[in-house]
Computed example of a mutant assay.
Amino acid sequence: MKTLNALVLLLVFTFGYGQKKFSKSEVEKFQKKLNSEFADPKTSPLMTKDLKTFKSLEFYPVNETFFVNATLVKAKGGKVFEMKESGKYTSKYIKYGTLYFKIKGKDFKLNVYQNLELIVQEKYKNHLFLPFSDLTSGKQSYIGGRYIDLEIPKGNTIAVDFNKAYNPYCAYNYEYSCPLVPQENDLKIEVKAGVKTFH
């Protein structure tokens, strides 16, 4: 089985600090880059039979509703824990903090994490991992949930664009082992944004 640090699959960040505005063009760039990676045999997680017929991933229509400026409350203590994976492997993480935000007038929260192996690398030292599941999981989107890559902000506000949510590699190829979404990161709302399920 291939081991996979799912946090480095796609580091297509929209870096920035404080309040940010929604950008459809940024989402389109994200989608184009993702499709390019999947079409390239050198970087694609697809199985050989799927790569031969691959044209594009399926995305939800870009929707500004699922772009939020969340309030980040940092966690205290930084206790190390092992996040379960789809395979037999586990990776060590710390909970960096909790994001508080609204979608369609309702309050939600999600925890963000740091992978201890990843953050020792200079270019990923500020990387935050946001795994989540929602009411589309197992229906229109991947049953195991999806991921978003973020960067530690200078302030306490962080832009989260669910239009940039992507599937773990194990959604495409059983040989990969990917972090499972922690139960506390299950959203009780349909997040119709980002990548849909494959096939």
Rank of each mutant, 00 (worst) to 15 (best):
G138H: 10
G87F: 07
E175W: 14
D107M: 10
L72T: 07
Y124T: 10
F67E: 02
Y124K: 05
N156L: 11
I148S: 01
E117M: 03
L34W: 08
E184K: 13
Q140L: 07
K95S: 11
S91G: 15
E122N: 06
K55M: 05
E64Y: 00
K49P: 01
V73T: 09
K33L: 12
D161R: 00
T48P: 14
N63R: 00
L118M: 15
D40M: 11
G78Y: 15
L187A: 04
F66L: 02
K49H: 07
V195A: 05
L34M: 10
K84S: 13
Y169D: 02
P61Q: 01
N69C: 09
I143T: 04
K84D: 14
F129I: 08
N167R: 08
M83D: 09
I119C: 06
S44A: 08
K32W: 07
N173G: 02
P45K: 13
T53G: 03
D40Q: 12
L34P: 01
L135K: 07
L110A: 05
L51H: 11
E82Y: 05
P45H: 13
D149I: 07
S86I: 05
I119Q: 06
K125S: 13
G194I: 00
N5D: 09
K109N: 14
M1G: 13
S177H: 08
N126K: 11
V8I: 15
G138C: 05
K88H: 04
N173R: 03
E85W: 03
N5M: 04
N69G: 08
L110M: 09
K139A: 13
A171R: 01
F162V: 05
S23R: 13
N163R: 01
K29W: 03
A39F: 13
T48V: 15
G155F: 02
E37Y: 09
Q114A: 06
G18L: 09
T48H: 13
N111M: 04
K79Y: 08
L150W: 03
F13Y: 15
K139F: 14
I103K: 07
I189C: 08
V112T: 02
E85P: 01
H127P: 04
G78Q: 15
H199Y: 04
A70N: 08
Y124R: 09
V191D: 02
D134W: 00
Q183W: 03
V195S: 01
S44G: 04
T53I: 12
K196S: 03
T136V: 05
Y17H: 14
F129D: 08
K164R: 09
E28V: 05
K95L: 13
T157H: 01
K52N: 15
T53E: 09
T197L: 06
Y142E: 14
K192A: 12
K154F: 10
N63F: 00
V73S: 12
F81K: 09
K125D: 06
K52Y: 12
S44T: 08
D149M: 08
N185R: 05
V112F: 05
I189S: 08
C178H: 12
C178L: 10
E175K: 15
G194L: 00
D107N: 14
K123S: 10
L51I: 07
K164G: 04
I143G: 08
K102T: 12
L110Q: 09
P61N: 03
G145K: 00
L118Y: 14
E122W: 05
P61D: 04
Q31E: 12
Q31C: 06
L11F: 09
T48R: 15
N167F: 10
N185Y: 09
G194H: 00
L4N: 14
T71L: 10
F13W: 14
Q121A: 14
L130N: 02
E175A: 13
L116R: 08
